[in-house]
Simulated assay, not measured.
Amino acid sequence: MRVLVLAGTSDARALIGEISAKYDVIASLAGATRDPIDLGCETRVGGFGGVDGLVAYLEEAKIDVVVDGTHPFAAQMTWHAANACAIAGVRHVILQRLGWKPQAGDDWRYVERFEEVEGIIPEGATVFLGTGRQTLDQFAGLKGRRLLCRVIDPPQRAFPYENGRFVVGRPPFSIEEEVAFFKAEGIEWLVVKNAGGTRSRSKLDAARQLGLPVVMQKRPKRPEAAVVWSVKDCVAWLAQ
C-alpha cells in the first residue's frame, strides 16, 4: 500500500516512523522550514498546485491512502486534500491532535481571527506572538505594543513592524526555559493558536505559572472526513 503523508507536525513524523517499514511511504512538506528534519522516507517539498495539481499527483504517484498530518491551522491544505481525494477516489484520513483546554489558573481569551486581538491587549504591553511568522500580517493593528515572534530559521527579512523583533529558537522548549524567556523579555501577554499536543504546551504552562493572560485562536472548520486523534489510532486505521 502506498501512503502519502502530508507532514510537518511531530505527530506526522512519529507516524512515518511507525509505518515506514510496513508501507511504501511518501512524505510531503510545504517547505516553510529551510532545514527540515530527515523523515527517513521519500520526501517531496513544496506545494502541489491546488486541488487539480494534487489530483494529478495522486494519480501519477499511484497513491492508495492520504494521511493529512498537517498543522490543525493549515486549513487550505486540509480542504485541498479532502477535495482532491474525493475526486481521485483515494482513501483519506486526518491525523489531528486534540485541542488544548484551560486548566485551573489559566486566563484565556478566545478569538476567531487575530485581528480581534487589538481590542483585547492594551497599549504598552509586551506581547509574545507564539503563532509563527506566517501570521504576522494579521497583527498590524497592535501599534503601541512591543511584539516578539519566535522563528526556527534566522529571518531573511526584517520584522514587518518597527515595534517588534524576531527571536530565533528551535522547539521543543521546557516549561523552565519558557518561564525564563518570558521573565527575561518582560512578556505580559501570550498569543497562540489552539494547536494542541505536548511539544508547544510548555508556553501555556509557563504563562499559567506567571499569571499571564493568553489570547487563544479557535481552530478553523475542517472538512467532513475520517479523523483520528493519535498516532496509535492512525496506525490502526491504516491496518484496516
Rank of each mutant, 00 (worst) to 15 (best):
I94C: 08
D68C: 14
I87C: 05
K101R: 14
G69Q: 01
E59K: 06
W108A: 13
I120T: 01
V117P: 07
A74F: 02
H80E: 03
E112I: 05
I120N: 09
P122T: 01
A74Y: 06
E60N: 10
E59Y: 09
G130D: 09
P72G: 08
I94Y: 02
Q96G: 09
T78A: 07
H92I: 03
T131R: 08
A75Y: 07
K101F: 10
Q76S: 12
G89M: 01
A75N: 02
D107A: 15
T78S: 03
I63T: 08
D137A: 08
G132A: 03
T131W: 08
F114W: 03
W100Y: 14
R113V: 06
M77H: 10
G99A: 03
F73S: 04
G89C: 13
Q138P: 05
P122F: 07
Q96P: 10
F128S: 09
F73W: 11
T135I: 02
F139L: 00
F73K: 12
L98W: 14
R91V: 08
Q138I: 01
E59C: 01
P102Q: 12
N83L: 11
V67E: 13
V67F: 11
I120M: 14
I121W: 07
D64T: 06
E116W: 14
G130Y: 07
T131H: 06
F73I: 05
L98S: 12
V90G: 10
A125P: 09
D64R: 06
A75F: 02
D107F: 13
F128T: 03
I94E: 07
T131K: 02
E112G: 08
F73V: 06
V117S: 01
F73H: 11
W79D: 00
I87R: 10
A125Y: 06
F139S: 00
Q103E: 05
D137E: 14
E60P: 05
A81N: 08
E115Q: 00
E118V: 03
A140Q: 15
I63Q: 09
R133F: 11
E118C: 07
F139P: 00
E112K: 04
P122I: 04
A84T: 02
I121A: 14
L129G: 02
E123L: 04
T126E: 13
L136R: 12
H92G: 05
A61W: 11
Q96T: 08
T131E: 09
H71E: 03
G99H: 05
I121V: 15
L95E: 12
T78L: 00
F114A: 03
D106V: 11
A81G: 11
D68H: 08
V93L: 10
V93H: 11
W108Q: 07
Y110A: 05
E59M: 07
L136N: 04
I121Q: 13
I120E: 01
E59R: 11
L129Q: 10
K62P: 11
Q96H: 12
V93R: 11
V90M: 06
A104Q: 12
M77W: 06
